[in-house]
Design a protein around this nucleic acid. Structure first.
Lengths: 333, 333
DNA sequence: TTGTATGCGTTATCAA
DNA sequence: TTGATAACGCATACAA
């Protein structure tokens, strides 16, 4: 069932059918309803490939995440997908993994679909910070479609970053721990992403601000799996009275460590997580965590995508939202 | 840059370029390498819309979930996406919500993209069990592409269901509780889906098998949010010494209830969750949970999709995998 | 207001 | 082994 069939059945030309389908004003009411009847009756839908071929787009936005089985990514995708659909865009999701090859391959795949915009979710897309070239593929992609990065920073034409101010959030969190008498802070991270580097910097700023010497042993790199973190801490048995982590899962590993060692939380050990996921609430005691404002960043991104696709060029390359400390039971404040 | 440009630059016809691109045997080695050089040099990629128009497919599989911010769905999508990509298929993800309108609309959207197969993830797609018509849209969709349902049951031509034996898993779990001396079992659920109905049936079978009268008050319907469950239980204050839930989040709500009431877990109250998500490990005490074998069901689905797309028609309409009880610290067995 | 004709970039058929 | 050409289904410029 194609446009020719509908035209024939309606006794009009394909141009008229096309006009009706696309809601053109230049059709008489009589013709419109006649054609519409046939269309409904036959259950006709335009062939998206033919449409795409002609106009060069399929009204689709590509979304790239390293993995979807991470609560932060899932939350973002959920929001993005919902809002894009509301506004008439469909989504192609791709999970790139963390390797540069995966990222480049999936980006190419999405571009080959002539998407209208590309959203990268996650700090991993900023690269490790070791070289500028590692994000070249993003600038390259931005030549073909506007690129948005949620919680990541990449500089380039047509590249728009929507960030949470992880550095300040972390500085304030660590500052609060210090202000409440904690001396030995442990900083736990699972990546070297832009976001992780910002969080680290914030932590260091807080320590320096309090005149506390910054030692290497305070910064631990670990896997983001609760038991792995716990066992790692048990194996190296560090002395500390507070832990901040770059993700809730890691933080909960520290809580489990404390419980294994018979340490009270938050009495002997304060713990602060990041991302304010449902893990924070599942945990016991419930985890104090920094909300990195995923929904807010996504909402902004959606607004901007719609604006840019409607021809509004006045969009800031970068915007930063403050994080928010959600106090629960693993801190005494 | 299209096939004509490449043809011109290579000094051959578009037919030959097409053959080279599609790896046809009927091209001389000399021509092939010449064309390939130009293609690489110009960075040419075939236009997917034109390809789709011609051959009627874009090598794409549609994935439908009610929501992606649910660990079970996320895990499934993660696995499906990965494996499909490995095998040369791209994914279009759509989140339908739980309403029938949303499900139908998103199904139509995916079908309009001429996908090669459609995967529904989640028991919600079986409908509420109140009428057969509510799943008609799935049978309708199956006329256009093979339909797979993960953890849901719908009968129809070209509809394939990959299920976990929730009923048996639940019967055995409740049976184990009874065998270990528990008398007052509470069954907590957040939906009326096929899976929830199977789990309920399994619970009832276990009770009846043990000669325990089945009372309405044993079955509670609640929201799937930890604090909501906890508060609900606090508000009705039921007497029970064991709880089984249809999802980990709900089960953890019961654990929180016990902690609020000063009940020991598992001493005073045993709790068993479902889906064996990371919440189960985040929880303290860590949650005993039934693993519903998401990865296994997905693996089977992928194998079947590939087989069917390669013309293998010998695929069972339905397959059932046993669930698996993962014992942790909220049970005494 | 409606219709005709053309282009969009492939794949595939049929000749050569 | 290669090339010319006809689909594929739609949008749209232009003509009527």
């Amino acid at each position: 069932m194609n446009i020719y069939d509908i035209a024939k059945l309606s006794g009009v030309s394909i141009a008229t059918v096309s006009r009706v389908v696309n809601g053109s004003e230049k059709v008489s009411e009589k013709t419109r309803s006649k054609v519409l009847d046939i269309i409904r009756q036959e259950g006709y839908t335009p062939n998206v490939f033919a449409q795409g071929l002609g106009i060069g787009t399929m009204h689709t936005v590509g979304i790239l995440v390293p993995t979807i089985s991470d609560q932060y990514m899932a939350k973002c995708v959920s929001y993005l997908e919902d809002q894009l659909t509301v506004h008439g865009y469909d989504c192609i999701l791709s999970c790139s993994g963390f390797s540069i090859e995966g990222k480049e391959a999936r980006t190419q795949m999405l571009l080959s679909k002539h998407i209208d915009a590309l959203v990268f979710v996650g700090s991993t897309y900023s690269g490790s910070g070791e070289s500028v070239e590692e994000t070249d593929y993003i600038r390259e992609a931005a030549k073909q479609a506007p690129v948005f990065i949620i919680n990541g920073y990449v500089k380039g034409d047509n590249v728009f970053c929507r960030l949470c101010d992880d550095r300040t959030a972390m500085r304030e969190a660590v500052g609060a721990l210090l202000a409440h008498g904690r001396k030995d802070i442990l900083f736990l991270t699972d990546s070297r992403s832009y976001s992780a580097r910002e969080k680290t910097a914030g932590c260091i700023e807080a320590l320096e601000g309090a005149g506390i010497p910054v030692r290497d042993e305070m910064f631990l790199h670990t896997e983001n799996r609760i038991h792995a973190v716990r066992d790692y801490l048990l194996s190296i048995n560090p002395v500390f009275d507070a832990a901040v982590a770059t993700d809730d899962g890691i933080a909960i590993g520290a809580v489990k460590f404390a419980q294994e060692k018979g340490l009270s939380v938050p009495g002997d050990l304060c713990v602060i997580g990041y991302n304010n996921s449902s893990l924070a609430v599942a945990c016991n005691p419930e985890l104090t965590s920094i909300d990195s404002r995923a929904e807010l960043l996504c909402r902004e991104t959606i607004d901007n995508i719609l604006a840019i696709l409607h021809g509004d060029a006045s969009i800031p390359a970068c915007s930063i939202q403050p994080g928010r400390l959600i106090s629960r039971k693993t801190t005494d404040f």
